[in-house]
């Protein structure tokens, strides 16, 4: 994959060969500048690659985007400050022309229940905590029922405690409404805790260094942080990134 044209072309990604199964939770890790976010934007057709070939459920990203739409959770939640949590979610359905207007209200309530913000629907983003804003953002991404959810360092700006809380929330939501998830992060422990598989990218140009299958993905009870298998795989990942 290449970007730009002529002299300003930046060789951002190279030989990314990756197959994701439906329903799978795949994390993409790597150092800053390795093209993690760029990869998500290629797959969702926000950035058209100059060469290479991306196939989403047998369609090109452009075709898929027109037909089905991706869910996308951004790093900064990217909610509209002038709309309440409920209005932000509703707007996504309105823009994507998902569900008849009469049913949208009920769907907004369901989604707020799903992310445990039932009582915060009429609050503006500025009145919510960082974690709450990201939950609204997840609800918004799920509002038009995409099969594939893209998450671009969604918890990167949160403090450690909120972050761990959000991990368990995400695991719960993923169990309740199975999606294919592509999750970009620079936290190895986060990737290991959430994913079925982890793609390690190397930088300049971004390429796949290794793909690791998580041995015991998303164990019940949230004790994974102390599990020996978890710690061994974490050490392996660390080594891979520092090579």
């Amino acid at each position: 994959m290449r970007f730009g044209a002529g002299k300003t072309a930046v060789h951002a990604l190279d030989e990314i060969d990756l197959n994701v199964r439906p329903g799978e939770f795949v994390s993409i890790v790597g150092r800053s500048g390795c093209g993690k976010s760029t990869l998500l934007r290629c797959i969702t057709n926000l950035l058209p690659p100059t060469s290479g070939d991306i196939s989403v459920m047998g369609m090109s990203p452009g075709e898929y985007q027109k037909d089905k739409r991706f869910g996308f959770v951004f790093q900064d939640a990217a909610l509209l400050p002038w709309k309440t949590a409920a209005e932000n979610i509703q707007l996504a359905m309105q823009l994507s022309r998902h569900a008849p207007q009469a049913k949208r209200q009920q769907r907004v309530r369901d989604l707020l229940d799903l992310v445990r913000l039932s009582n915060f629907g009429n609050k503006y983003p500025a009145q919510l905590s960082g974690g709450m804003r990201q939950r609204v953002s997840i609800a918004r991404a799920l509002s038009y029922e995409p099969e594939i959810l893209m998450m671009d360092e969604p918890f990167g700006a949160l403090d450690e405690f909120t972050r761990r809380e959000m991990h368990d929330e995400l695991i719960r939501i993923h169990a309740e409404r199975p999606h294919t998830v592509l999750f970009v992060t620079h936290s190895l422990s986060e990737a290991l805790y959430l994913s079925d598989r982890i793609v390690v990218l190397a930088a300049r140009p971004g390429r796949v260094k290794s793909i690791i299958s998580v041995e015991n993905p998303r164990p019940k009870g949230g004790i994974a942080h102390a599990d020996t298998g978890y710690l061994r795989q974490l050490a392996e990942l660390e080594e891979l990134l520092h090579e």
């Binding site: 990217a78 509209l80 400050p81 707007l91 996504a92 823009l95």
Partner: peptide
């Protein structure tokens, strides 16, 4: 409006007019 907001509108399939009406204007 920041680039992530523009990207959200594109992902959701919004038109330029919708981006203006719901985001840029405010």
């Amino acid at each position: 409006i920041d680039s992530q907001t523009v990207e959200f509108f594109r992902i959701a399939g919004a038109s330029k007019a919708q981006l203006f009406r719901h985001a840029r204007l405010y």
